[in-house]
Design a protein around this nucleic acid. Structure first.
Lengths: 222, 222
DNA sequence: CATGCTATTATACGGTCGCATAATAGTGTG
DNA sequence: CACACTATTATGCGACCGTATAATAGCATG
């Protein structure tokens, strides 16, 4: 019957390097979500991607470079999503910030697997210049987004001046700290409480209640 | 000459289990500081402690139990130190909180090796009931300490009422978030800025600038 | 000084790791 | 249709992992 006809399916498909790299990055993120640190493994990632081991070392200088690429991809994607969420529609500065907070504590952001992934990235930052570069760029972009949103708040009527840069640092830290604890123990407090704490922080800022953040550009008139 | 006299030094010393366990915990902390995740290794820890591999499995059910004991020991020690630092002398509530913040961003708290160690603990929490228990207890103790310090602030003259429990959650998150970012990139901002941001948060709380934290026990009179 | 308990050591086993190497095979080009 | 290019696979190597096992030896007790 079909014995003489060789199977038409090729054993593998040759893909352009860029596409294959994206596939490997996606597989890396999947493994990090599933296994955390244990997911940083050539064998696991290649198996997840459905390719052989050697392909990773062919497209990347090593597993460290692949993880850095994954870090970059995930961080960029998530920030873009939160940013778009905050900038959707035409709302006031407080509502936009509130939207950003809601996105930061949405169920998918509090997925334990997501936290696992992030911990892997963080633990690699001190050991790899490439990871450190990705972190610095990502954290800088987050701060810039918050500075943009806080800048709109600052220009709102009735809001006293404040130094936007350190304010963004403080707000980013508050968000991250709440997110970490909520990821470690979802029962510590309710995500809505986290959003409320962030909103309160913004309210206090807009009320000029943070002495050290008062703008030096607009010194007190004597 | 001395051929016939056997060496007087015994090959090892027999120690009571409790002392040996403490030694192993100390060696574990040293390895976590040095190697991060790579330090979670029977061989490395036993080598650090100067004992043989098997001793770990003799005194602990496995390496997970040992790490949990190390987590407990370190967290308890650090919190006690910060607590003592905040309660030293006879200062006002704001000064005590400031002392707590200073301890939280002191050079030894920002040691990269310390951060590495903490990341290992955090990454193990989701996978181990024992680690989770230690975290819950530790985080609860931290919150209680902050609640105690914030309680003193609340009772200070001229300070409007506020809900202490969620306030402690927010303050703990702010501290942790600043500490994480400072550990990831010491150049992002200066530790003094972190202290200033925490102090500002306390000032705003004492000024009643956090709407959602206003005490429900003193509802608005109509 | 002999004896027993057990803390401690030494070793072996099966497994996974990253990486290097050589062979294989898809695929565009002549 | 043959060829060359290289993406891809398959395999092997040395190192480390955690744990189980049996042998060793410190030390208290009689």
């Amino acid at each position: 019957m079909s014995r003489s006809s060789p199977p038409a399916e090729p054993k593998f498909r040759r893909e352009p390097p860029a596409a294959r790299r994206e596939e490997l990055v996606a597989a890396t993120l999947a493994c990090l979500k599933k296994f955390g640190h244990g997911g940083v493994s050539v064998r696991r990632i290649s198996s997840e991607a459905g390719v052989s081991m050697g392909l990773i070392n062919h497209h990347f200088p090593g597993i460290a470079g692949l993880v850095a690429a994954a870090y970059d991809a995930l961080a960029t994607t998530l920030l873009a999503a939160s940013r778009a969420h905050a900038l959707a529609g035409d709302a006031g500065p407080r509502e936009r910030l509130r939207a950003f907070f809601s996105a930061s504590f949405a169920p998918e952001a509090l997925d334990p697997a997501h936290f696992r992934t992030w911990l892997v990235f963080w633990s690699l930052v001190p050991h790899s210049a490439e990871m450190r570069a990705v972190h610095d760029r990502t954290y800088g972009a987050t701060r810039e987004t918050l500075e943009m949103l806080l800048g709109r708040l600052k220009r709102a009527p009735g809001v006293p001046g404040f130094r936007v840069a350190p304010a963004a640092i403080g707000l980013a830290a508050l968000i991250d700290g709440l997110w970490v604890e909520l990821s470690l123990n979802p029962a510590s407090f309710h995500p809505a409480e986290a959003v409320a704490l962030c909103n309160d922080w913004v309210q206090a800022l807009a009320a000029g209640a943070f002495p050290a953040l008062r703008a030096p550009a607009a010194p007190r008139r004597h």
